[in-house]
């Protein structure tokens, strides 16, 4: 097992290298640089040149790339051009927001999706089945920003139950954290639960059909016990797989949700940095999010092996 983890961690290195290399290529393609943001609308060409020299953006890309990798090996991701802090700090202070959002919505999506999926599988080929599956699909069919704004108006203004945006760290106020994260997490979960619901349904159908479930039923176990104890546990494998894939999607989705709900998360940090051409933050931020994605997938693979010994043995 340890060997497996070590191997997976090692194999993450080339992946992350590819990510950082791609970031350089994109930065090379993107027109304009941070000097425009610093200099403003009326800056003269001389002022712009001065800013570029100060920050070293006038140097050739290759030289900047070599420097960046050199610093990376020393664990230094550089300094933001605009935020007055190191890239590591800039990303770390945002991470709790994005992790809260992604984590909570993953939980919500899993709960809602699994329930819908089980419901559909248990009442297979009935209107409940069709209805749950359409419900699951609707989340996939509506742009999340629009859905989020509707939720804000409904729960924030009309009903006045929940705040319309902003972030409270869990360390400061647990209830406040729950209140401010509910709507964003729900929005994001709504777009993700469909995938989980469908996977759950089909794997449940497979499992329900298998001998041991039939046996259990024949032995007179109550239907609910059968479903939850046996069937669901076996159906966990595909759910976990989906969770791994969804983790990446959630980080992407977070970009939009964070701006609708005014959350200071990593997604908005990176988008803002792209828009302002704050290259060190783009580089560092993408490296961190990619690392999280890779890490989550390693965990998922481990869970996978733990849930299904056959998979582990194959490796």
């Amino acid at each position: 097992m340890l060997l497996f983890i070590a191997r997976r961690l090692l194999s993450a290195i080339p992946v992350l290298f590819v990510v950082s290399l791609m970031t350089f290529v994109i930065m090379w393609l993107v027109p304009g640089d941070v000097s425009a943001e610093i200099g403003g609308t009326d800056a003269t060409p001389e002022q712009i040149q001065q800013i570029r020299e100060q920050l070293g953006i006038d140097r050739p890309l290759l030289e900047r790339a070599v420097n960046w990798y050199g610093n990376l090996l020393r664990g230094d991701l550089g300094h933001s051009y605009l935020l007055n802090r190191s890239v590591v700090d800039a990303v770390l202070e945002r991470l709790p927001v994005t992790l809260s959002l992604a984590g909570l919505s993953l939980v919500l999506a899993t709960i809602m999706g699994t329930l819908l999926g089980i419901l559909a599988a248990v009442r297979h080929n009935s209107w409940v089945d069709q209805g749950s599956m359409v419900a699951a699909l609707i989340g996939l069919s509506i742009p999340d920003f629009w859905f989020g704004l509707v939720l804000i108006i409904l729960f924030g203004v009309t009903l006045g139950w929940l705040p319309t945006g902003g972030f409270v760290p869990i360390t400061e106020d647990v209830l406040g954290w729950v209140r401010c994260m509910t709507l964003p997490a729900l929005t994001l979960a709504f777009t993700q639960m469909g995938v989980i619901a469908r996977m759950t349904r089909s794997s449940m159908l497979d499992v329900l059909d298998q001998d041991f479930v039939r046996t259990a039923r024949a032995k007179g176990m109550r239907a609910r016990t059968v479903i939850f104890k046996h069937a669901l546990r076996n159906a966990l494998v595909p759910i976990v797989t989906v969770v791994g894939v969804t983790a990446g999607v959630l980080l992407s989705g977070a970009v939009v949700i964070e701006s609708v709900f005014s959350l200071p998360g990593v997604g908005r940090l990176i988008v803002g940095s792209i828009q302002r051409r704050d290259f060190p933050v783009i580089q560092g931020g993408l490296l961190v999010t990619a690392s999280i994605f890779v890490f989550v997938n390693i965990v998922v693979d481990m869970l996978y092996g733990w849930l299904d010994p056959r998979v582990r043995d194959e490796r």
Partner: peptide, 18 residues
């Protein structure tokens, strides 16, 4: 000074009294 990028969310926050 709160930074809220979405005008729709800003108006909602004002109406909600936040």
């Amino acid at each position: 000074f709160r930074i809220m990028p979405e005008p729709g969310a800003q108006v909602a926050a004002l109406e909600a009294g936040e």
